[in-house]
């Protein structure tokens, strides 16, 4: 299994993928933005400010799913001491941090015209801040701990402890009274209270942002591989 993700073998594959995503990314971005900003209808209650949703909701989903990925990889790293997996989660982390930040900022911008405040310390918003802190701690522990083995161990433990925050974020709006509205899309039951004309731009934006994640991840992963190779050459 470890051979499959041997860095040197997939180097070529990464190069090609980056080129491919680059070629389609801007066209898809334009299409998604046109749907989100022009073709989709305003909300019956909120008017045009509902368009913030097309960035806010995918960002929040991505920030949660990248964190879950990091936790999964960290568990494997911690148990089997595989360095390649560590490289992957190291490359994912900044993306997650970026999208957590985006979700929080767009949420604040959306809160002002709808709720009347930029910020409220309700359960959903606070747990998102905690997620942001976990991302920061994770990245900082990789960056500032000099010994590699120790850095891997401590960062993995931090990531794994943050796992409990994920269900808390997800269900905070159901468990406690919050200012944040309950979830519109319930994946487990497959129901949604978002009208289909707004669902299409939402899914398009999700696709575009996922592509963006993939692009950044591949570029970051490539530089990590190059860095490792350089180190080995020096050692020889």
């Amino acid at each position: 299994m470890i051979n499959l993700i041997n860095p040197s073998k997939i180097f070529k594959w990464i190069e090609n993928s980056i080129k491919f995503i680059n070629s389609i990314f801007f066209i898809l971005l334009l299409i998604a933005l046109t749907f989100a900003l022009i073709f989709s209808p305003p909300d019956y209650l909120q008017g045009d400010s509902v368009r913030i949703m097309y960035v806010h909701v995918p960002s929040a989903w991505i920030s949660l799913s990248t964190y879950s990925c990091i936790v999964f990889l960290s568990i494997l790293t911690f148990i089997f001491k595989t360095k390649n997996l560590m490289l992957i989660s190291k490359s994912i982390a900044p993306i997650g941090l970026l999208f957590t930040f985006l979700a929080i900022v767009t949420g604040a911008l959306w809160g002002k015209p709808t709720w009347g405040v930029l910020w409220a310390w309700d359960a959903r918003l606070t747990s998102m801040i905690i997620l942001f802190v976990f991302y920061t701690l994770y990245i900082a522990s990789i960056k500032f701990i000099k010994q590699e083995d120790k850095a891997h161990k401590i960062s993995s433990i931090i990531a794994i402890l943050g796992l409990i925050n994920i269900p808390i974020i997800k269900y905070s709006v159901d468990w406690w009274n919050t200012l944040h509205q309950p979830q519109s899309i319930k994946f487990l039951e497959g129901t949604s209270t978002i009208h289909s004309s707004m669902m299409l731009p939402l899914m398009l934006m999700l696709l575009v942002l996922l592509l963006y994640c993939a692009l950044i991840f591949l570029m970051k992963y490539k530089t990590e591989i190059i860095r490792i190779k350089k180190k080995n050459i020096k050692r020889l």
């Binding site: 909300d43 019956y44 709720w115 009347g116 405040v117 519109s184 209270t193 978002i194 707004m198």
Partner: peptide
Amino acid sequence: DRILAKHDEQYMPPELK
């Protein structure tokens, strides 16, 4: 001394409403 609006999770176009 302060009022905040809490909206629900439904989003739809005005015509539909």
